Amino acid sequence: MAGMPVLMACTPEVKPFKSTDVTGASFGQSLQIKDHNGNLRTIEDFKGKIVIVFFGFAQCPDVCPTSMATMAEVKRLLGAQGDRLQVLFITVDPERDTQALLKEYMANFDPSFIALRPEPDELDAVASSFKVYQKKVPGSTPTTYTVDHSAGKYIFDSESRVRLFSAYGTDAATIASDIQILLSAA
């Protein structure tokens, strides 16, 4: 076989994601929730953008504001491509998180971020569609409860397909790098 030409693949190099690749999963595909302005939203509403979905609540003392600040930093790191990112915050506390409160909460991080508020009787189904754990934990009074919940982020590509899961604590540069890979493939 001496002198046989070696054939090289003509496909571009695939860059590996740093977040967990969940391509092919079906998380949140039937999502239909009102946003903080009262508009009914679906994942498909954001086709053409990379979408990050995060579950949390406005009175969360640490995990939620930290995660949302990370998302604001991701958008900043993307520079001009930041306009192609949509962050969706889904409340796990619809009893206290009113539309007005959620709108104000999003403005603390980035005015383009959108909060989604399922009705209390819809919350379990929405959380289940993302395999998100959420449970109300009683406080010293009926209104001082907290909510334990999963803290990862789901990243959808520009075709509204879930592609990545980013664990809590993943730094903004890592998430931005993964999003740039998705944007370059769009």
Results as ranks from 00 to 15, higher is better:
I50H: 08
D97H: 02
P138R: 05
L182Q: 07
E104T: 13
P61G: 14
D45T: 04
F46Q: 01
T98Q: 02
A100V: 04
T174Y: 07
K75A: 00
M71W: 01
G79R: 01
I114D: 13
Y168D: 13
N108H: 06
R117T: 13
F17Y: 15
Q180R: 15
V22L: 11
P142S: 07
I114R: 07
V87F: 01
F89A: 07
L88Y: 02
D35L: 05
Q59A: 10
E73Y: 00
Q29T: 14
A107M: 12
F27A: 11
L182F: 04
I155H: 04
E44T: 09
T91N: 02
K49D: 07
A173Q: 12
N37G: 03
V74G: 04
L123A: 14
E119H: 07
L164K: 05
T144K: 09
I181A: 08
F156Y: 15
V126F: 05
P5T: 09
E73D: 11
I155F: 05
D83T: 08
A25R: 13
D62K: 10
N37L: 12
F165W: 09
D62I: 10
Q81S: 14
K15D: 04
T70Y: 00
S160K: 01
P12H: 12
E13I: 12
D178P: 02
A25S: 15
S67H: 01
D97R: 07
V126T: 10
T146R: 11
P138G: 10
Q81C: 00
P94A: 10
V6E: 15
L78N: 06
E44A: 15
F54Q: 10
G3R: 12
E119Y: 04
V147P: 02
K49R: 11
Q81R: 12
R163Q: 14
R84P: 00
T70D: 13
R84N: 11
V87K: 02
A185P: 00
T91F: 02
L123Q: 10
K131C: 03
M8H: 02
L77K: 12
A72D: 06
T70W: 00
F130D: 06
R117A: 14
F109E: 14
E159K: 14
R161N: 15
